[in-house]
Design a protein around this nucleic acid. Structure first.
Lengths: 350, 350
DNA sequence: TGTTAACACGAAAACGTTTTCGTTAGGAAT
DNA sequence: ATTCCTAACGAAAACGTTTTCGTGTTAACA
């Protein structure tokens, strides 16, 4: 078990100075061909690799991106990570992930742990609790200390930084448009309570679509579910609520749900009540995850292009990292990228 | 935009030496109460936090765990990560993830990037390509350099290190036992080609169960699918193959599939052919992911307890990290932990 | 022969810590 | 007055790099 070899050891072994070794390995013209060859051969033999930590300390950059997300067991977030990792790796960066688990405290702690030298910048999506409490001091402080942040999906407007979002409003409007143009008259909405911005926007998109077609929204067609019901444990409660929605509104001929799970639950409830999808009731969800693809019938849904969001976020961050050295305080001009949604039509609509 | 404050700056500002500042902040008795208070107050005011990179360099440990997995957009793997992150964080470690994307080269490159100082140890699951090529030199080298590795799920036996696996053999045997004791006579198997160990083991478990009940396996009841069909693009090909399996064997009354996707595809095919699950044909899958929970009917499946696997792996690694300083080369005694599977009975079986 | 230039290399600082080992000054003890 | 101890602090090394700035040797030139 030989420890990793260092410049110092090579220097001692070959009876030259550390500087000579370093220069020889970087093919400096200062060093004679002879010694260069000798040193490089030796280094290769012992499989020398410069120590990343020492480099980070010297260069004051770690070539590492910190990701903070609320949850990783989630198709959307893991696909975003894949996107980030893809472009990060291509540009020589590593990614280190922290999970807030939707908790404000864990978000803060995780960010503090990483902000003290471990990473060059953040890509993050805000936890639900943070959005509820509206306490954003940790974001402001990190930015103040010169560490760039890119927010995606669940962003907070009052923070000045680069952002990558999906046009939730437009995405859901298009979905509901589709239902309306398919002839649906009583379109139910299954959404979440309004803590997280995206829920609110998707709800608004639904309302906009109705209005555009001169249809007035009916309160009893809108089911607002508690976010906690997304957790696997409360599945039955969710199912009951959805079934109740159908029972108390027999005329429902379509459902728009703000996520996959609500959508497939709606399909399940419909079937349980003897309705068939899409003949009796058409269903559209949001997020093109594995549920949508493999549900029966397969689910028409609004795709957010999660991987692209990750790629864009990483590009934004890296570009800022590599350019920030230039001018200390030029105008910072933050961007907000909007990634287009796409309606993926499958068998749950006509 | 104030940069992070350092010991040196505090020292200069308060007109003391760097050592004094460092000691004062760590409440050394060497420093008088007066100066200690003054320094701590100043540090708090400027929100001083020791630089992680400098600490890593000094202590020669990074308090960071490297994870290498083939794919992150995957319920099993992301749940393992969650488990790792959970205990790692609790013990003051961070995790940095690298994706091999099932490629040998990316696996090697990723490991090399991380092995040179960035992390203290690896937790990994081998890529499919690596298993096919059976080239494990990168594992051996990392271990030789004194960096501990913990393998999970897709482990390679000839490498000497800690491992966390699931008893695939037993898990699938129990599943098939269940089908047999439910009265099924013609149990089909949908499995993968044999590159990855787990596929082979699960197949073997199926065979063992049949044998235990004196039933002889029939070749035409066993469908070996190419692994590539797991990718979303080739979904239709997969569906056709499975349908063909049913059509050419009308007597099939049960299916055991080595993963979720194959199982739900089987259910879909059965329904397409007018068969109902579980009355005409019963289905059991492997992996308790989101598909199993939300399929219609919900899928009976073998749970691998992915999160627990992650937790165990992290515990194993951290324990080795914290104890390795003791004796240089005591007997290394690697462990292989077997995480029990569990048959989760849902509506796809009677 | 003396000056200069090129060549090949080494010393040292710097990144930000922690820690070991002085060093100084003052008071107590002899 | 001398010695000794202790309290309070500083200098410096170490972790592993890279880079700037010497410095010594040799060869060429006047």
């Amino acid at each position: 078990m030989k420890r990793k070899i260092t410049l110092k050891q090579i220097a001692r072994e070959l009876d030259v100075s550390i500087s000579t070794v370093s220069k020889a390995l970087r093919n400096s013209i200062e060093i004679s061909e002879d010694t260069t060859q000798k040193i490089q051969a030796f280094a290769k033999l012992y499989n020398y690799r410069p120590n990343n930590i020492a480099l980070s300390l010297k260069n004051r950059k770690t070539k590492t991106i910190g990701i903070i997300i609320p949850e990783i067991v989630h198709y959307f977030f893991s696909k975003v990570i894949r996107g980030i990792e893809l472009v990060a790796n291509k540009k020589g960066y590593n990614v280190i992930v922290g999970l807030s688990n939707e908790s404000f405290d864990k978000e803060v702690i995780n960010m503090e742990m990483l902000a003290t030298g471990s990473i060059d910048g953040f890509i993050l999506s805000t936890s639900r609790e943070t959005l509820q409490q509206q306490d954003y001091h940790h974001f402001k402080e990190t930015i103040n200390q010169g560490m760039p942040i890119v927010m995606f999906d669940r962003v907070v407007n009052e923070i000045n930084c680069d952002k990558v979002i999906v046009d939730d409003l437009k995405g859901s409007k298009i979905a509901v448009d589709k239902l309306i143009s398919n002839g649906c008259k009583n379109i139910a909405l299954i959404t979440t309570k309004d803590y997280v911005t995206v829920g609110r926007l998707r709800t608004q998109g639904y309302l906009n679509a109705l209005e555009a077609f001169g249809m007035s929204p009916k309160a009893n067609l809108i089911l607002k579910v508690d976010d906690d019901l997304l957790s696997e444990d409360h599945l039955e409660v969710l199912e009951e609520e959805v079934e109740l929605l159908f029972k108390s509104n027999p005329k429902i001929d379509a459902v728009f749900a703000v996520n996959e799970l609500y959508a497939v639950t709606a399909m399940k409830a419909a079937r349980a009540l003897g309705l068939t999808v899409p003949d009796d009731v058409q269903v559209i969800g949001f997020s093109d995850g594995v549920l949508s693809k493999h549900a029966t019938p397969t689910l028409t849904t609004v795709s957010q292009h999660a991987q692209i969001m990750g790629e864009k976020a990483a590009e934004l961050l890296i570009e800022r990292l590599e350019n920030e050295s230039e001018d200390e305080d030029e105008v910072e001009h933050y961007q907000t990228l909007i990634v287009d949604t796409e309606l993926i039509e499958r068998d749950s609509t006509k």
